[in-house]
């Protein structure tokens, strides 16, 4: 059952507004965090192919979101999500050419409007755009190869900051489950293929995995709603990734999320519809709610 309760919120005093801005709960915290990662990475290690390419990805992403949001949703959307998508593409895609950045960013945002089911988009946008470009354009684009100096200190900073932020967003369990799954399955892989365990662990100590762990798999709009379900889904991401790794797929984690994420969403929708149907049979007099938003973040 669902209830609509009209609540008139008291006007927040000025100090509370400031506190809200500084709080880790506000919607701008993830964009701020990823911008910090970009700036620290760029200024300390020069991680970007170039500023221009990253800017192109961000601008393409925002422009596409603005136009499509206006046309298909009839409103000007908040650009935080598009900004994160653009910056992820700008950081993760590596290409000497400019156009792969624009194509990846445009694909990412457009997928939200094209591949939808029951009012929800199925793919994590940046995962979709980047995966498709990597798969379709092997001769022109690759993924982040610059490894932040392969430096532990910078990784620890990202882990701490990232963990604090996803904790406050109540999504730490997703990142944690994935990391544990990856490490355990690394032992399994190492045992099966007789290669050093550290070589199997190695990828997760690199920077692209940090973006994957803190931004992609935790995306509220493309994860299932229940906490338990979220943990199960990322375990399956890690599991499918293991099989892709057996096949020597270099972008195994991206491709695993590409497949597992939408399937999990579809299963959830199917279960929702079944529950809704059974509820309507049990209590036909009660109205149902359609298009409810499961989002925990704006």
């Amino acid at each position: 059952m669902s209830q609509h309760v009209a609540i008139t919120a008291p006007k927040a005093p000025q100090t509370t507004q400031w506190k809200k801005w500084l709080s880790l709960d506000n919607r701008y915290m993830p964009p701020v965090f990823i911008t910090l990662i970009l700036l620290v990475g760029q200024l300390s290690f020069g991680i970007l192919e170039s500023y221009e390419r990253t800017l192109l990805a961000i601008c393409t992403s925002i422009a596409t979101e603005m136009i499509m949001g206006r046309i298909f949703l009839g409103k000007w959307l908040n650009m935080a999500s598009a900004y994160i998508t653009g910056i992820s593409v700008g950081i993760l895609v590596r290409s000497p050419a400019f156009w792969p950045y624009a194509v990846a960013a445009a694909l990412a945002i457009t997928s939200k409007y094209v591949i939808r089911c029951r009012g929800r988009h199925l793919f994590n946008p940046s995962n979709f755009g980047i995966s498709l470009v990597l798969f379709l354009l092997p001769a022109s684009a690759a993924m982040l190869s610059i490894q932040w100096g392969n430096n532990m200190a910078s990784m620890v900073v990202i882990w701490v900051l990232g963990s604090v932020i996803v904790w406050r967003l109540r999504r730490f369990h997703i990142s944690f489950t994935y990391v544990i799954s990856f490490l355990v399955l690394a032992i399994v892989r190492s045992w099966i293929i007789h290669e050093p365990w550290l070589s199997e662990v190695s990828p997760i100590t690199g920077p692209e995995y940090q973006l994957f762990i803190f931004f992609m798999i935790t995306d509220p709009k493309t994860t299932v709603r229940s906490k338990k379900g979220q943990c199960i889904v990322v375990f399956f991401v890690a599991l499918l990734e293991m099989f892709f790794r057996f096949d020597q797929s270099i972008y195994a984690e991206l491709y695993a999320l590409f497949w597992v994420g939408p399937i999990a969403m579809l299963i959830e929708m199917w279960r929702d519809s079944r529950h809704a149907a059974s509820r309507s049979i049990e209590a036909p007099a009660l109205p149902t709610v359609s298009g409810s938003s499961p989002q925990t973040l704006p």
């Binding site: 190869s145 490894q147 100096g149 392969n150 430096n151 532990m152 990784m155 290669e195 050093p196 550290l198 070589s199 199997e200 662990v201 190695s202 990828p203 100590t205 690199g206 692209e208 995995y209 790794r245 020597q248 797929s249 270099i250």
Partner: peptide, 21 residues
């Protein structure tokens, strides 16, 4: 695949030849 796997990682892993497949 193995080359990319190791070079992506932390310095303690990459700089030790025994960690390379």
């Amino acid at each position: 695949y193995d080359f990319a796997k190791v070079t992506a990682g932390n310095s303690t892993i990459i700089q030790d030849a025994k960690n390379w497949p």
